[in-house]
């Protein structure tokens, strides 16, 4: 395929993905917005008012970046895992596999679908957040960079999960038992400075800590961790996830017999 044909194939996959999550917006866009709004109301406004300052900011201002990032991560991941597993389950993934579309175009088309949903939900949540906190972005470049990288990383992770999934149960295991605990323990609701030394050290092993704090640094200008290290870690995970996803597509593992 020449470059024009590859672009048409990519935009077809992407528009199909966007149409899918827009068509079922009651399942894809509304629930995360309601959930995060409840976090704003309960943790930020009601309980947060009694907690006082954290990291030099009101508790509401402190949790907003983490909650936005949580929405981006979970939505990027769940969009790709449910869409691609659905295509596998109904076998219409074969439409792509029999076509001349190169594997990297297939992967980027699906991943960008996840990125679009992650960013759209993140944007809606951000707009909602402005009703609760005085949001300002200290470093727009860092904020956009980290949100894009994170969205790509978790879309890739969702793709890998979808390839290995054999049932709809399998696509909910990772979000429920891995992603959610790591996000909650990744400093969304607290600063690691509050933790005992041992647990603060253990938290350094949680990749979500770097993502949440890098985003918080972009928005508020404060962070518990080294930003350069955070960017390197996210980039490293992204390269590994992309390479593995391409390996799965090229080998046809769990996609071709």
């Amino acid at each position: 395929m020449n470059l024009t044909e590859q672009w048409i194939a990519f935009s077809t996959i992407l528009s199909r993905e966007i149409k899918r999550f827009m068509r079922i917006w009651m399942q894809t866009l509304l629930p995360p917005v309601i959930t995060i709004t409840l976090y704003f109301i309960i943790f930020g406004s009601l309980i947060g008012a009694r907690i006082g300052e954290m990291g030099g900011f009101s508790y509401m201002e402190f949790v907003v970046p983490g909650l936005i990032m949580m929405a981006v991560i979970t939505n990027s991941y769940s969009n790709v895992v449910s869409s691609f597993y659905g295509a596998k389950f109904q076998r219409f993934v074969e439409e792509l596999l029999v076509s001349p579309t190169p594997n990297y175009i297939v992967l980027w088309g699906v991943v960008m679908g996840g990125v679009c949903r992650g960013l759209l939900v993140g944007l809606i949540v951000t707009i909602v957040a402005t009703f609760f906190a005085d949001l300002r972005v200290e470093s727009p470049l860092l904020t956009i960079t980290i949100v894009l990288m994170t969205s790509v990383l978790f879309s890739l992770a969702g793709f890998i999960n979808a390839v290995f999934a054999n049932s709809f149960d399998d696509i909910s295991i990772v979000p429920t038992f891995v992603l959610t605990p790591l996000i909650y323990l990744g400093g969304v609701f607290y600063s690691t400075e509050l933790l005992p030394e041992f647990w603060a050290g253990v938290s350094q092993l949680n990749p979500m800590l770097y993502i949440v704090n890098a985003f918080r640094h972009g928005v508020l200008g404060v962070s518990d961790i080294n930003i350069e290290l955070a960017l390197i870690i996210v980039a490293g995970f992204t390269v590994v996830a992309y390479s593995y996803a391409m390996h799965l597509l090229n080998s046809g593992k769990r996609l071709r017999q």
């Binding site: 395929m1 020449n2 044909e5 590859q6 048409i8 996959i13 076509s99 001349p100």
Partner: peptide, 10 residues
């Protein structure tokens, strides 16, 4: 239309 897109058809 999607299938055509996968073959690079405008």
């Amino acid at each position: 239309i999607h299938q055509a897109g996968y073959y690079g058809i405008p």
